[in-house]
Design a protein around this nucleic acid. Structure first.
Lengths: 338, 338
DNA sequence: ATCGGTACTGGTAACGTTTCCAATTTAGAA
DNA sequence: TTCTAAATTGGAAACGTTACCAGTACCGAT
């Protein structure tokens, strides 16, 4: 069952059927209706491979996810997938496991799969990819990734938040509650992930509150429950009499919270904790965890919106910065009120 | 840059280049090497649309997920994606939002995208789809779904667990700890999801322990944190002096646990709780939650393995049943030892 | 009646592969 | 040397669309 058959049934030329399928205007209402019913009767579905071959593109949008399992990304991916499907495209999802650079995977994927566009979640995009970026034939959108400051912004779009500022506010909030000894769990200062930005925010907040930065207060964790748990244990073992800890990702924050409670300590009575991302778990942990909420739905929706416009040449590359919100919950205690 | 160009550079016919690309044997080592280097030099990538058109199939494997957000599925999807990519295929991921039947979406997806095969996660597959199933040209694998007993098993493959038995063991464990008043949170007895099987296991376990089934002990929840939370609240309001509750999905269990603790009650001192699925988070909740662990990695791996074999006609449809394991953690208390 | 224009419709060459069949080369046997 | 079969290679017809270029039919205006 192909376009030729339909044309034969309808007694018209294939080109006319093609026009109907693609909603071209130059077809009389009568023939359009006739062809449409015949298509319907025979359950004809146009062959995508043929269309793609002819048009030299596909109907697929690639989504590249930095390969650590994180419910924050999982939810964004789901939403992105829905948005993509709604627009008649399909989502090709690819998890990237570190070894090869994010960008190389992305560009290979685009070429190989003749993707219409690509959304990359997480990871890092440095200046080194600038020329490669320029060679890309389809739009790419970078979501929630660390983007080098000096890179030419006209080559790609991005959706992000003010990581440093958001972290600043979180830590400043802790300070406002009277905390002075505030630990931090983060991938570290020389890491290439977005976490370093949050780490900078932490330092600025300390400075702003005239608290001296103490290298001892940092423990490294890499975006898993386990690493958050272990980092917190190391922090506690140092006996620094911390009263609070800022964890730059919720899943690590939950691991850290578990570590605290496993030692018989209480949240927030003994230690206050703030996470980052706003995943559901934080709300359903007990006590509920204060966190910096990222607008994941909006990030997903806007990235697809933007990509769609870019694909159809309806706009230029742009860099959208969304707002975060500090969700104040049960895990932070005010030291002054004791 | 297409196969013709490569052929011209190499001074051979396109058919020879094609043979090299597809690893056909009838090419001399010399020409093969020459062509390979030329392909490499020019960074030539075969056009998938053209190949697909010619071969009337694609390189895509569809993954259909029942559209509620559940970290259990999210993790399986990630693993499936990795396995698919490793085999040189791509994953087209589609979230299904209830309204249209799972199967209709699946078959439409297959036809429209010329998929090579499909893996469906969750949902329900009843007898009504039997003829439609028979008409499918590509293999389909049903993972973690409720499958009607009378359906012809030669038409599809499945990966599942012994839901009823696993639930039985969980509830029986609760009984063995001395619990007699055991609530249950489940999508209900007339629901079409896999939850009903677990509900049956619950009832069997009660019977086996000479505990009379009480309709009051059931509250309906539909696989979200919130619904677990709310169901537990309703359960608590009934004042049934429950000592334990079996929740047929971890995310609901976490919601329920939160509801319990929000009332100032303690787990497991006041109420014991068991979940189902084995998502990471149950381990990091405090107290850690006893749950029926499903082998998600294995489910993912085996489903892709099987699909791959089916695609290459290396085996027949089969129905794999994997083992679950009751992870005994902190959320269950033994009543006898007080 | 003729013309010009509009509204439709038809024919057909691509798009980049794969695969069958035919043609050529090669090697070994007679 | 000649012949045969095996090993390679080439040619060309599909696969199912789209989009360009023509062609036809019709209508109102001259």
């Amino acid at each position: 069952m192909n376009i030729k058959d339909i044309a034969a049934y309808a007694g018209v030329a294939v080109s006319t059927v093609s026009r109907v399928i693609n909603n071209h205007p130059d077809v009389s209402e009568d023939t359009r209706k006739k062809i449409l019913t015949i298509i319907d009767e025979h359950g004809y579905i146009p062959n995508n491979s043929a269309r793609n071959l002819k048009r030299t593109v596909s109907n697929n949008i690639g989504v590249l996810v930095k390969g650590i399992y994180n419910p924050f990304f999982a939810k964004i991916v789901q939403k992105i997938g829905e948005e993509i499907n709604e627009r008649g495209y399909s989502m090709i999802l690819h998890y990237n496991h570190g070894d090869i650079s994010d960008f190389d995977i992305a560009s290979e994927l685009i070429k190989e799969k003749k993707l219409r566009g690509l959304i990359s979640l997480g990871g890092e995009f440095g200046e080194s990819i600038e020329e490669k970026l320029a060679e890309l034939e389809v739009p790419i959108i970078i979501v929630s990734a660390k983007i080098s400051k000096n890179i030419d912004k006209s080559l790609f779009s991005s959706i992000s938040i003010e990581n440093e500022q958001a972290a600043f506010e979180a830590v400043d909030y802790l300070c406002s509650l009277g905390h002075r000894k505030i630990g931090i769990i983060s991938p570290g200062y020389d890491d290439k992930s977005i976490g370093t930005l949050r780490y900078e925010g932490y330092k600025k907040a300390l400075e702003h509150n005239q608290i001296e930065y103490n290298r001892q207060y940092l423990e490294i964790g890499r975006y898993t429950f386990e690493s958050g748990f272990e980092a917190m244990e190391r922090l506690l073992e140092k006996d620094l009499s911390l009263t609070a800890v800022f964890v730059i990702s919720d899943i690590m924050a939950i691991g850290a919270a578990k570590a605290i409670m496993s030692r018989g300590m209480k949240i927030p009575e003994d230690i206050s904790i703030i996470g980052f991302d706003g995943i559901d778990y934080t709300q359903f942990f007990h006590p509920s965890i204060t966190t910096v909420d990222q607008p994941e739905e909006s990030m997903a929706k806007q990235s697809v919106d933007l990509l769609y416009k870019l694909i159809n040449n309806k706009c230029e590359h742009q860099h959208i910065v969304l707002n975060t919100k500090l969700l104040k919950r049960e895990s932070c205690r005010c030291i002054f009120t004791e």
